[in-house]
Simulated scan of single mutants.
Amino acid sequence: MFRRALVVAAFIGLTVNSQVHAESSTSKPEVKLGFAKCAQCLSMALVPQFTQDAKIDTINFTSGNDVLTALVSHSVDIAQVTYLHFVTALDRGLDVVAVSGQVNGGSEILVRNGIDLQQNDWAGLKKLVDAAKAHGAPLRIAASRGNAQDLHMRGELQMHGIDPNRDVQFINIPNPADHVSALQRGEIDIVCSVEPFASQIRLSHAGKLFNYPYDQAAGKLSNLIVTRPDVIKDHPEAVKATVAAVVKMVDSLNTSHAGWLASINQYTALDQTVAVESLKNAYPDYHMYRTQTIAIAKMMKDLHYISTDVTPAIDKNMDYTFLTDATGKPKAALGF
């Protein structure tokens, strides 16, 4: 359903046109930069302050699905999405090119308070899953379909002998901000949420921590910066300036969280305590991990997220040129 909706939206298009303008000797390139509403994603709001070489207009979307749709329909020029979105786009034959990493992590599996389950007790969870399935009432597991947390969750379940397609009932909650209320109302038993909403769930005692799902093929990898081939071809200076700004932003995040915390508060209205807690599970990183991306694609195919082998497309559509220019490092030192 996600892939069908994405392709339809991509070809219908949104109402805003791409805003990269032709560079001239007297004007800066203008870039529309899209990002999603999650703790690690919201640092993208800081990118414009790290460059004088482009006028970057940041636009916040509810989810990575929305950001990718905006990119392929030419409503934004550069986008923060996830490795999952990147691989899914390649599987659908969409023209997207990864140009930088950004921030990883942000995933957390939580269970409702009524479930007697200790942290990381996968054997105990397997017993609960089997018992619930035998009684014809499979455990209800929620995630936001198409985001990194959904993939992390399904990969972890599969690793521990739980078939995510047959043993449990997956419930799609598109907006991660709604995870906490679904737990509170008892509509779901388990959720793999994204920060800062995962921290909100724990700190509000709506649910309790079960696991940080980083043992599957994707590890902690979550976010990528992507664009389209036409933007690279027609406006390379805009892409260059944006990637350089992302690199500077990542370096800044590794020394201070002040601006990052302000962005979380601005876009989510969550209090400072939740914001601070959420950043304990976020890892700024501008590297792009090619080998791990291939492993992610294999896992996605095994989980029936995609239907084709996109390995050749991954090699072709990860462009290290701008990251190399911004860091002065060879691509071999940047995750290639």
Results as ranks from 00 to 15, higher is better:
E30H: 13
K32L: 11
K32F: 12
L33Q: 02
A36I: 02
K37R: 15
A39S: 13
A39L: 04
Q40D: 12
C41I: 01
C41N: 14
S43K: 09
M44S: 12
A45L: 05
L46N: 10
L46E: 13
L46M: 13
Q49C: 01
Q49Y: 05
A54P: 00
K55M: 03
D57F: 10
F61P: 12
S63G: 14
N65F: 10
D66A: 15
L68C: 07
L71F: 08
L71I: 09
L71P: 08
I78N: 02
Y83H: 09
F86V: 09
V87M: 05
L90R: 03
V99G: 05
S100Y: 08
S100T: 09
G101R: 09
V103L: 05
G106D: 07
G106V: 04
G106S: 10
R112Y: 02
R112C: 08
R112A: 10
G114R: 14
I115E: 08
L117M: 06
Q118W: 02
Q118F: 09
Q118V: 08
N120Q: 13
W122E: 05
G124I: 07
G124P: 07
L125E: 06
K126R: 14
D130C: 01
A134V: 06
A137N: 13
R140S: 06
I141P: 03
I141T: 04
A142M: 03
A143K: 10
S144V: 04
R145S: 13
A148S: 15
L151N: 11
G155L: 13
M159G: 05
H160W: 03
H160G: 05
N165M: 14
N165I: 06
